Simulated assay, not measured.
Amino acid sequence: MRHPLFASFAVGLAAALLVGIAVTELAARWIAFSLFVGIPTGVLAGIIVIAVTYALFTRRGTSTVETTD
């Protein structure tokens, strides 16, 4: 992959939007200002997804299995 940081941000943005909207809609039943819960949750989910996808995209072929000749 040529630009793992760009791809990670794209995936993180999508995750932040999906999680933020889902939490806002779920919390709307019980909380009047559910957007104040949904936005931070979405941002946190986006940051976590960016970090995980960047780590997965940039991981070198490190294997725990050793071969002997």
Rank of each mutant, 00 (worst) to 15 (best):
T58C: 08
T68Q: 15
F6S: 08
F6M: 09
A16Y: 01
L44H: 04
A45F: 02
V43R: 01
A51F: 11
F57G: 06
T64Q: 13
L35I: 14
S8K: 05
T68C: 11
L13F: 10
V65N: 12
T24M: 05
T62Q: 14
A10I: 07
I50D: 01
S8H: 04
V65M: 05
V52D: 07
S34K: 00
A14W: 03
F57V: 01
E66N: 11
A45L: 00
F6Y: 07
P4N: 12
A51D: 11
R2C: 01
I31E: 09
F57R: 10
T67S: 11
L56C: 05
W30K: 08
V65T: 10
R29Q: 05
E66V: 08
E66H: 06
A22W: 02
G46Y: 03
W30E: 15
S63Y: 00
L13N: 05
F57N: 09
V52E: 12
T53K: 10
G12W: 02
R60G: 09
R59A: 15
G42N: 03
I21H: 00
V52T: 13
L35F: 07
A10R: 14
I50V: 15
I31L: 09
A22S: 11
V65I: 11
I39F: 04
R2F: 12
V65C: 11
L13M: 10
I48G: 02
M1H: 08
L26A: 10
I48V: 13
F9Q: 04
G46L: 08
T64A: 15
G20A: 11
G38T: 01
F33P: 09
T24H: 07
A10D: 08
A51V: 07
G61P: 08
I50L: 11
G20N: 09
V37E: 10
I47C: 05
S34M: 05
G20W: 04
G61A: 04
E25M: 09
F9Y: 09
T68Y: 14
A16Q: 08
H3S: 13
G12M: 07
A45C: 03
P40L: 01
L26S: 06
V23W: 02
R29C: 01
L26I: 14
V11E: 10
G61F: 09
L17W: 12
S63T: 13
L17E: 06
T58F: 05
V65H: 05
A32Q: 11
F33V: 06
V52H: 11
R60W: 13
S34E: 06
T68S: 14
S8F: 02
A51S: 05
A16L: 07
T64M: 13
G42I: 00
L5H: 14
I39G: 01
P4W: 12
